[in-house]
């Protein structure tokens, strides 16, 4: 099919607009990435540093300010993700079972928690009453199940044909065994999606951390990052040379970004499937 003149003009504009949009998404990230490899105190816009140096990273490692928050973030994200994934699977399985008495009621309760959103205050009081303040368990337990993820997983479990576990049931397999050895292996794509969702959520958590954690040694990367850049606090590390603090700032942005970017290809692969399964009809 031959394109008309109008279509050609449209195409040029289309590629231009969408190309610009796409560049806006990544150029700021690339700019900050180059800052971490540059020793130049002049921060003018560029994508490749005048002189590439690893000095900033070496300095940050030697100075050690980021190590603790980084380890905290990793610990919280890994533990939280596995806890959430387990708990979500354990509940999604009975909720997907069409013979479960009261199934509609339990599913209604889940949806109710999405619709009634009282915000942080009641949960803050609960965490205080349970004496979980200043522990990572407060964050892990409160973030235990995300109802959207639960619904996603439940819907996927429902789509598995029941005949697959009928024979196992006749053989006397326990429900836990059916979940682990039949249902979960069949649900790999959706489990991967939810794994990634939980991991990203825990890694990115900021508000609950400052709500439940007051002990500075337990702060995560996100907390340190906001303190340094948005609140412009000097983190107790007083440097005579402000460029040293600046170096730590930019490096922190990249350190907070890297796990997300590393997971991004996987997010892409499973994510569109995941949202298509669950976003439109809960």
């Amino acid at each position: 099919m031959k394109e008309t003149r109008g279509q050609k003009i449209f195409n040029v504009f289309n590629y231009l607009i969408m190309g610009l949009f796409a560049l806006t998404m990544i150029v700021p990230i690339l700019y900050i990435l180059q800052l971490t490899f540059s020793g130049d105190p002049n921060l003018d816009f560029r994508l490749i540093p005048k002189k590439i140096t690893l000095y900033n990273y070496k300095f940050v490692i030697k100075q050690g300010l980021l190590l603790r928050p980084l380890l905290n973030s990793i610990y919280l994200s890994v533990t939280g993700t596995f806890f959430s994934l387990t708990l979500t699977s354990v509940l999604a399985y009975p909720l997907a079972d069409k013979q479960l008495p009261g199934r509609r009621f339990f599913n209604f309760l889940v949806v109710l928690t999405i619709m009634i959103n009282l915000g942080f205050l009641p949960k803050y009081l609960l965490v205080r009453d349970l004496r979980l303040m200043n522990t990572y368990w407060s964050l892990i337990l409160v973030g235990g199940i995300n109802s959207f993820n639960l619904i996603l997983l439940r819907n996927y479990f429902q789509s598995i044909p029941e005949e697959l576990f009928d024979s196992a049931r006749i053989d006397g397999a326990s429900e836990m065994k059916i979940l682990i050895s039949i249902v979960l292996p069949l649900s790999f794509p959706i489990l991967a999606t939810i794994f990634l969702f939980y991991f990203v959520a825990f890694w990115n958590e900021y508000f609950n951390v400052i709500l439940y954690i007051t002990d500075h040694t337990k702060y995560t990367l996100q907390v340190i990052l906001r303190s340094m850049i948005i609140l412009e606090e000097d983190m107790g590390a007083s440097f005579a040379d402000t460029t040293l603090l600046d170096n730590i700032k930019y490096t922190t942005v990249i350190v907070a970004l890297v796990p997300i970017l590393a997971l991004y290809p996987f997010l892409q692969r499973y994510f569109t499937k995941g949202i298509m399964l669950g976003s439109v009809k809960g």
Partner: peptide, 14 residues
Amino acid sequence: FLSWVVVGAIWYIM
């Protein structure tokens, strides 16, 4: 997939 903190950090620097 970036947290609001990272988004904020990027645009505060820019």
